[in-house]
Amino acid sequence: APVLWLNPDLDMSAGKAMAQAGHAAQLAWWELTDEDRGAWRDAGFPLSVRPAAPSHWTTLVTSGLPLVRDAGFTEIAPGSSTVVADHPALR
């Protein structure tokens, strides 16, 4: 199932983390083929949200997977990488 990996170096409120995870899921959706979107939908949109291990975060950010960068209007500095969307179909 897809995993949305949270940046372990950022302190986000629960609401901010949920918003960033939502953005990551949307970015993953846009990157999927129609067939992969249908398969994800038919499976009931399984999804996990987890903090990344610090040692894994750099690899995730440079992996080419969908990456959310915050605009900086609230509690996170502008341009901060917040979540990586790791959907198996995008690997």
Rank of each mutant, 00 (worst) to 15 (best):
W57G: 04
V3E: 06
H87G: 01
A43Q: 14
W30V: 10
R41C: 04
G72N: 04
G15A: 05
L6E: 02
T58V: 09
P78L: 07
G44W: 04
L60T: 05
A17S: 14
G38Q: 15
L27F: 05
S48E: 12
W5E: 00
D70H: 00
F45P: 00
A71T: 03
L4Q: 10
R41L: 12
R41I: 11
R41H: 12
V49R: 11
S81Q: 14
D70C: 00
H23W: 13
W29L: 02
W57D: 11
Q20L: 07
A53R: 14
S80W: 05
V83Q: 08
E31Y: 01
A85I: 13
L10V: 02
L10T: 02
L47M: 15
E31A: 15
G79S: 06
G72S: 01
S81A: 15
Q20E: 14
V68P: 11
V68M: 06
A77H: 02
D34H: 10
L67P: 04
G22Q: 05
W40L: 13
D11C: 03
P51W: 09
S55D: 14
V49M: 09
T59N: 05
W5H: 15
V68G: 03
L60N: 12
D42C: 05
P54M: 08
T33N: 05
V84R: 03
S55A: 14
A77L: 04
T62L: 12
S13N: 03
S80M: 08
A39R: 15
P8Q: 10
P51A: 13
A19E: 14
A17K: 08
S13I: 00
P51C: 06
A14M: 10
L67Y: 04
A21G: 15
H56F: 15
D70Y: 00
T58M: 06
P51N: 09
A85S: 12
T74I: 01
V49G: 02
G64A: 07
M12S: 10
A25Q: 10
P66S: 07
A39L: 12
Q26G: 02
L90R: 11
D34I: 10
A21I: 04
R69V: 08
P51T: 12
P51F: 15
S13C: 03
D42R: 15
W40C: 06
V3R: 13
L4F: 14
S80N: 04
D70S: 00
A1C: 08
M12K: 04
T82A: 06
P8M: 10
A24M: 04
A24C: 06
A17R: 15
G79D: 09
G22E: 08
S48H: 10
A25C: 13
T33P: 01
M12Q: 10
A43G: 00
L4P: 02
L6V: 13
N7A: 11
G79L: 06
W40E: 06
E75W: 01
V83W: 02
G15M: 09
G72H: 01
V83Y: 02
R50K: 13
H23Y: 08
L90M: 07
W57P: 11
V3M: 08
D11L: 07
S81K: 11
N7K: 09
P51D: 14
A28N: 09
A25R: 07
P66Y: 07
R91M: 03
L47Y: 02
A85M: 09
P78H: 08
A77E: 14
L65I: 04
W29Q: 01
A17Q: 11
V49K: 08
D86F: 03
R91W: 03
A85G: 08
T59K: 09
V61D: 05
A85Q: 06
D34F: 02
A53W: 08
W5M: 06
